[in-house]
Design a protein around this nucleic acid. Structure first.
Lengths: 246, 246
DNA sequence: CATCGAGCGATACAGTGTATCGACGTGATA
DNA sequence: TATCACGTCGATACACTGTATCGCTCGATG
């Protein structure tokens, strides 16, 4: 509402609202968006550790220092990457009284994004995300529960959304950690088979971990999706159980 | 049981079972333990990004390359740090039928450790922990539920422990992310006050995030411990709710 | 046409993880 | 006891990172 504050005053601004430099027409347009997209492509293909300012710049036929016209730190680039992915997540909505469906949609939206971009969870845990897409996602998440029966108080909504989000990010990290280990297996099978698996077998054979051994032997090891769903159901049941009391 | 395999054969081994080099008596004992302890001290004091092989070695009055006699990679050092912290966590036990108490103890043990070592959650999410202390902790966690009423099947035990663990790590990451932001505030207050807070206020003033704004305005913002407990209760209720059906 | 100004990116620097290898001190052997 | 061989330590080096500095060049303007 108030007039936009002039850029360039001493006050530091966050990357989200700092204006882009005017796109110089000459060599190649280059925009914050193109930079972020290039970085995301790099991270998707070769992992987060492959995202260096030099490589991103090279992917855009530019020198490394060129990027510093659009961002002032690598961390800002990572923040922008996260926010861009938040932009990909369809905002959860609620149909009728189905708050469970809304929370499920929220969980699956984040899960799908995290599986598309395996580096996402690594960045999500670093620092709270406050970009416009992240805020929009948060807004949609809270709004999806607003007015549902039992969710009259904002505290109830926040607890539900917060707990689901926390479960989702934890579960995704665990799954992606396993997935990375398995991929290392796939690409370098000898290494896993010869090092990790026999190692675990030897550890279990010591008899010091009988319950773990029983788990490895007897448990019906669900696939990742099933485990995720089972835990999510747990959390949703927990929310439902606490609803009347809150 | 079987004879220990000879070291030095081609098969790669994990850090956990590779023997230490015999401690040369002359210049300074130096052991894997001392290295890990030095690294943990460094990480506790100055954050994980301050842990470089050079600095760890310097803290032990040694050259950087000396460490490579005890570890073959920095990642191994990080793995050892994580396992050392697992060793600090008191193994959860169950008193009588109180499975909730056992899971609570599990959650609080991990939480206390993660608050003592803020870098822990950053490492936990990277790759599954299979060190001896981590395995012992997992064993104790599963065993603490073994035989409790309703937990006859190992799948039930695994679901409960897994869900609680996943919640705990997610919640801790969120809390520590906020804590880091707050600490940045404390040490560099102008930066936060001048950049982040007015930024958020401006974003909310746009009216595009009404529910988020309502949350910021109206919610009874619990402290970190209360939020953790509330979410944990949610998860425990969820486990309880699903118990009969499993 | 001449001048100015801005942005690009070559160069540089401090720091990282790690490979290589020469020198040194120690233990075993003749 | 004298010599040799071996094994370990750490100086040096390399490729790479994020980022500061600053001269050059090129476009727009008077």
């Amino acid at each position: 509402m108030a007039a936009r504050r002039e850029a360039g005053e001493g006050e530091p601004t966050l990357i989200w609202e700092r204006p882009e430099p005017p796109s110089r027409p000459a060599p190649s347009p280059l925009s914050r968006d193109r930079i972020v997209r290039a970085a995301i492509e790099l991270a998707d293909a070769d992992g987060l550790e492959a995202v260096s300012l030099r490589k991103v710049a090279a992917a855009l036929d530019a020198g490394p220092m060129r990027l510093y016209g659009y961002l002032s730190t690598k961390e800002e680039l990572l923040d922008l990457m996260v926010d861009a992915v938040y932009g990909e997540i369809p905002p959860p909505v609620r149909a009728g009284d189905d708050w469970r469906g809304a929370l499920r949609a929220l969980a699956h939206g984040v899960r799908d994004a995290a599986l598309r971009h395996e580096w996402l969870t690594d960045l999500l845990s670093g620092r709270p995300s406050l970009g416009p897409h992240a805020l929009a996602h948060g807004e949609a998440s809270l709004a999806a529960l607003d007015g549902a029966p039992g969710f009259e108080h904002i505290d109830t909504i926040a607890l539900a959304v917060g707990t689901v989000n926390v479960y989702v990010i934890g579960a995704l990290q665990r799954q992606i950690a396993d997935l990375r280990a398995a991929r290392t297996t796939g690409m370098d099978e000898r290494q896993w088979q010869h090092a990790s698996y026999p190692y675990l077998a030897r550890m279990l054979a010591t008899g010091r971990y009988p319950t773990v051994a029983r788990f490895v032997r007897d448990a019906s090891h669900m696939d990742a999706a099933g485990t995720f769903e089972a835990g999510l159901d747990c959390v949703l049941d927990g929310i439902a159980a606490r609803l009347p009391r809150l």
